[in-house]
Structure formats: C-alpha cells, structure tokens
C-alpha cells in the first residue's frame, strides 16, 4: 500500500506539470493584464506602463514567462498579487482555513444526512417514507445550487433569522473565545448546506439503491438461514457492503466541494478561496487565478488518491500493489 501510494504521488508530478501548462497559457490568453483597468490610461504616461510591463516581464517571450512562473511554483513562490500587494500564496493561505471549514462542515452534513436518509429508504423501499426521501432527492438534484442558496438566505436568514447569511464571522467577536468558534460554525452552516445539497441527494440515492440490491444477494439469504436477526442483517451484512461506494466518493468530494465553493462563497460573500478566485478573475489578478487553479488541481489529484486508498481500506477484495 505504501509503495502504491508513493508511486501514485510520483505519477502526480507529470500531471501537475501538464495542467500547469494549460493553466498558464489559458490565463495568458485572457485579454488584458494586471496593468489594464487598474491604471487610468488617460492620466498615466504610456511610457511608464510600458516600463512596468518590461519590469514585470510581460514583454518576455511566453515560454520564458512560463519557465519563470513554473520554477517559482515548485519553489513555493506563486507570484505577487497585484491587487492585494502581497504574495499569492500568503493570500490563499489566509483564505484557505475558511474554505476548509466550509468543506469539512459540508462533508459532515452530507455524510450524516445522506447516511440516515439512504439507510432509512434502503431499509424500507417502496414505502411512503422512501417516496418522501426520493422527492427530496430529485428536488435537490434538479435545483441549481445558487437557487437553493437564495432560497436558504431568504427563508432561513431573513424570514426566520436563524442563521447569518453573509460573511464568515460575526462582528466584534474575539478570536480564541468560545463565541468565536460558534460564530464561525454558524456562518459556515448555510453555505455548507448548499454545497452539500447535490452530494446529499446523490449519496442518499446511491446508498438506497445499493442496499436494495444487496438485500437480494445470496449472502443475505445465507445470513437469514443462519438465524441472524433482520436488524443485524441490515446493519452489518447489507450496510457494510453498500457503504463501500459512498466511502470512496469521499475523495472525489474533496475537489468537488472546493470547486463548488466558487459560486457559493460569492453568493454568501464568504471570504474563502472561491470568492478570492472570482474576485481575482474580475480584477485580472492572474497570478492568484493560476495559483488557485493549481491548488484545485492538486486537491483533485489528492482526492482521487484518497478515494483509491479508502476503497482498499473498506473492501478486502481490493489490494493496492
């Protein structure tokens, strides 16, 4: 398993390299650069802009620019953000904890809710409760997350006033206190729920269908013939088999949730990596855009690796070597 993991990590390097080429050239194909729009062209000496371009290396051949960027990338230097006047890496790191909190809360909600709903529906298929769960599923699958986000904000925040709708922290709360942690989590719940909506629906459906399928397997009949009570048949024999696909999805989720946060964080004005990404695109802050994209790439790769490792952990038939 260790050797497998190391080999997989080794394979990641060329993939990251290839993605970096695509990311860099796409970013450079976008119209304008960090100097356009930021500086009033009528009041600035064009010679000065030209000088800045030269200084920043924008006039170098594109492959030289790429080499400069990628060599910096591997040394942990993601370049400077022009808008925020600080290293892109520092900028991302300052936003990352918020997004990670969002992702963690989203995953916790996803797994708890979909496990409970899926297990119930799988245990009692074709009953009223099952149909209710399915209606909720299809609703969640059919509704775009930004619509769901607006509905949540309107009803839960404005009508009921239960949870805050914007930001990541209440005003006037000191870091380190208990209130601070509560406030952080409170602010994360609504955006997390929106992020989790799609996975909740698909996992619930996944678990339900797999449980129905597993319940007709020979080993279930065998367990009944051994005198195993029905409750244990469901909780052990069936669930242990049906949970395999769900657990492996956890890895893929990691990347999906961070990708999804781009939209959700913007709607909730939640200061995370996703919001930073959108802002940076609007401001043509390419270094940050490229750095965030690379971060997403690495997260996806790590997610896939985790999925494979989880698979081997929960299914004895899978051996990684």
């Amino acid at each position: 398993m260790l050797i497998y993991t190391l080999r997989r990590i080794a394979i990641m390097i060329p993939i990251i390299f290839l993605v970096s080429v695509v990311v860099f050239f796409l970013a450079n194909l976008m119209p304008g650069d960090a100097l356009t729009g930021r500086i009033d062209p009528l009041n600035t000496d064009p010679a000065y802009i030209e000088e800045m371009r030269e200084k920043l290396g924008y006039n170098d051949p594109i492959y030289v620019q790429y080499l400069n960027w990628i060599s910096g990338f591997f040394q942990g230097d993601f370049g400077q953000s022009f808008v925020h006047k600080m290293p892109a890496s520092e900028l991302i790191l300052s936003r990352l904890p918020n997004t990670i909190l969002l992702a963690v809360v989203a995953m916790i909600i996803t797994y708890i809710v979909s496990f409970l709903m899926g297990r119930y529906a799988g245990r009692h298929p074709y009953t009223l409760g099952d149909y209710g769960v399915q209606v909720l599923n299809y609703l969640a699958l059919a509704m775009p997350s930004f619509v769901a986000a607006l509905l949540f904000i309107y009803f839960v925040s404005f009508q009921l006033g239960w949870l805050p709708a914007t930001g990541s922290i209440g005003s006037g709360v000191d870091p380190g206190t208990w209130e601070y942690i509560i406030s952080k989590v409170e602010h994360a719940i609504l955006p997390s729920l929106c992020l989790g909506l799609l996975p909740i629906a698909s996992y619930t459906q996944f678990l339900r269908n797999d449980m129905i399928e597993s319940s007709q397997k020979d080993f279930v009949r065998m367990a009944r013939a051994k005198g195993t009570p029905e409750r244990k048949i469901y909780n052990k024999h069936i669930l242990r088999n049906s949970v395999i696909p769900i657990v492996t999805l956890l890895g893929f989720d990691l990347a999906g949730i961070i990708g999804g946060s781009v939209i959700i964080e913007t709607i909730f004005t939640y200061p995370g990596v996703g919001q930073l990404f959108v802002d940076s695109i609007n401001n043509r802050d390419y270094t940050v855009v490229m750095a965030v994209t690379m971060l997403l790439t690495v997260m996806t790769l790590i997610g896939n690796l985790l999925a494979d490792i989880f698979y081997a952990l929960v299914d004895p038939r899978i051996r990684l070597d």
Binding site: K217, D218, F219, R221, M222, A223, A225, K236, H237, R240, N241, I244, V314, D315, P316, R317
Partner: peptide
C-alpha cells in the same frame, strides 16, 4: 441448517 447452490456468493465478501 441450509446450504445453498452458489458457494461463490453465499459468503459475504467484506467479512472474514
């Protein structure tokens, strides 16, 4: 007690 036709599937694959 009962023995079934298919020994390949009569045992649960995820338990020892």
């Amino acid at each position: 007690a009962m023995i079934f036709q298919e020994p390949m599937t009569a045992l649960n694959p995820v338990f020892s």
